[in-house]
Design a protein around this nucleic acid. Structure first.
Ligand code: FES
Ligand code: FES
Lengths: 144, 144
DNA sequence: TATAAATAGGATAAATTTATCCGAAATAAA
DNA sequence: TTTATTTCGGATAAATTTATCCTATTTATA
């Protein structure tokens, strides 16, 4: 469904959010440990989350990654996916035609559209906040 | 969503079905032209469709790929996807946890599950027949 | 039986994604 | 101001996916 990069990005953002509730910044090292991902690769993905204003970073000693507390409920899963995987999942054709076009549809267009619209809807209506709360409450996990 | 190989496989199967209605066998060359795919790679994918009993092949002169007419309505999109991409799309975790497990869910499990189940449902209830008919009727396309 | 036509399949190459490494730049604290 | 710490970003490598090439095998027909 999503690329590895995107999976790491989502999980990293969720972990950063849980820590930000406690006013703590986190390093790529700690993030990679907690979400079970390769550290250097994760650091790269964090950079693109920063460039896309999904998380913020503070350089230097005592720095790290964080998310402003009042932003956690504003960030949608869709933003993270779009930042990392682009929007092909939304506008691309399920069978690989140049683009998904009602006027020149692939044979599975109507079927795909329903599923894809639901996916898009889900991503746009799911906030980092609710995902992070699932972690904080102990009812969901970021690894294994 | 699907791999390139899977997209090609689905489109190839649809094209073979349309030709099989006219009792015609088709070559990888013709298939690749009609679905706009690399020929040799498409030939490889056709081999796995044959191994998975989705299409049948006839070697030698006047041979080619075909689907028994009465099987076209039996073949589900799900079989093709499973043959080529495996079942990770059905049983895998959307955030990349080892496996999707109600008892050890990722923070997005409940949200993903809804979309994934709908995708699975769609794939299992969509037949090659209806897709091929969309092509025959001219209301859908396999390339550009 | 010989020939031509067609799929099967192994070996290899190109492209993309995933992953690692290392030095540069920034920053807080001593 | 110096030092230690930390993110940034470019270069590179490994792994996977996508794509190509060539030969073997099969089969219908002449
Ligand atoms: S044209 Fe293929 S999904 Fe819309
Ligand atoms: S555990 Fe992640 S989708 Fe089910």
């Amino acid at each position: 469904m999503f690329s590895k990069a995107c999976e790491y990005g989502i999980k990293a953002a969720i972990f950063i959010a849980t820590k930000s509730y406690e006013d703590k910044r986190v390093s790529p090292k700690e993030i990679a440990e907690k979400i079970n991902s390769p550290q250097a690769f994760t650091a790269k993905i964090l950079q693109s989350l920063v460039r896309n204003d999904i998380v913020s970073s503070v350089k230097g000693a005592y720095g790290g990654f964080e998310i402003q507390k009042d932003r956690i409920s504003q960030v949608k899963l869709a933003q993270i996916v779009k930042a990392i995987d682009g929007d092909s999942i939304y506008i691309g054709c399920g069978l690989g035609l140049e683009k998904c076009d009602e006027n020149h549809p692939c044979p599975a267009h109507d079927k795909f559209k329903i599923v894809r619209d639901e996916l898009q809807n889900m991503l746009e209506n799911t906030t980092l906040e609710e995902l992070a709360l699932n972690i904080k409450s102990g009812s969901a996990f970021l690894k294994t």
